[in-house]
Design a protein around this nucleic acid. Structure first.
Lengths: 165, 165
DNA sequence: TATTGTTATACTCTATAACTATA
DNA sequence: TATAGTTATAGAGTATAACAATA
């Protein structure tokens, strides 16, 4: 047996890995060298802070995103919302179902195309967003406060290039 | 009415936002300025490439992470695996159930503590990981190829600092 | 008393395939 | 033919609360 499990996947040619801190006392193998893994860990941390910051509102990051897009593009239909969010039409159905059942979003009949709905925030949805926006901004500033302003800008640019598929 | 929906949440004091490209023709409001949002978009892109690269294996990024940690820390129990992954013990149960039902992971009785299991990869799991590792590395290099080597290193460092909660 | 794994329960997110109404 | 929304179905991930076995 030439294989020592504790060494499988250990850093070798990959010097661009953080390799410290994340999970104490565990050998994480190849993982810390993978952009996808670091992305996931960062996102988990950010999402948990988001959830804590907004726990009394029971709004997920995805729902906040959907409501923001509807607010900024009132009247758009579900298919285009899916495009904006990068998810399938069928996924949008359940998301809107949930928000509509909480009276935060309305499905209005489209005037130009009877197959589709025009999505709008309800009055409650609009005032909820007014309440939520400063909280979300504060949450994001708290997250970003671990980085300098320049680092935050650099991070957002790098992430955008990664996302530009 | 002083509120124009198309302007709600528009960039103002936040100059550290990418603001271009991501979703064509949609006003994304505050979203492009949020680290959490850019994180999510980047992760979606990376995960989709991961899924495409490994579609014939039906392995998710999370499952690959779990199998890597088990391979590098053979015999660890579910609670410590949960700590390493940053998820609850109850979440680990279902994850291991799935991998065990596919005969990739084994729950062996712990010799020191009869409450817990010692987790190991099966032989199939080990050889699957041998097959997967170069594919995952290639996938990650393809993702990171949108950035220079220095940028990738910087990104990983920034993400690690964000994740260090 | 505390910990490990489990179950029950619930919520969210995601996609594919097939269907309907409409374009 | 193509598109918008839907449903059925499936899989994955996540957590809380309570429980039995064990420490």
């Amino acid at each position: 047996m030439t294989r020592d499990p504790a060494v499988v996947g250990t850093m070798s040619d990959d010097d661009h890995a953080p390799d410290h801190g994340n999970a104490q006392n565990f050998n994480m193998g190849i993982l810390p060298s993978l952009v996808g893994f670091n992305l996931r860990r960062a996102q988990v941390a950010v999402f948990q802070d988001f959830a804590t910051s907004l726990q009394s509102y029971r709004i997920t990051p995805g729902q906040f995103g959907v409501m923001t897009i509807i607010q900024c593009n009132p009247g758009l239909n579900q298919t285009r919302l899916g495009e904006a969010m990068g998810v399938d039409r069928s996924t949008v159905v359940a998301v809107i179902d949930r928000l509509e059942s909480r009276r935060l979003v309305r499905r209005a009949p489209s005037e130009s195309d009877r197959r589709s709905y025009a999505l709008h925030l309800s009055d409650e949805g609009t005032s909820l967003m007014t309440e939520l926006n400063p909280i979300v901004r504060a949450h994001d500033r708290r997250m970003a406060s671990r980085l300098s302003r320049e680092e935050t800008a650099a991070l957002n640019r790098l992430l955008a290039r990664l996302a530009a598929s």
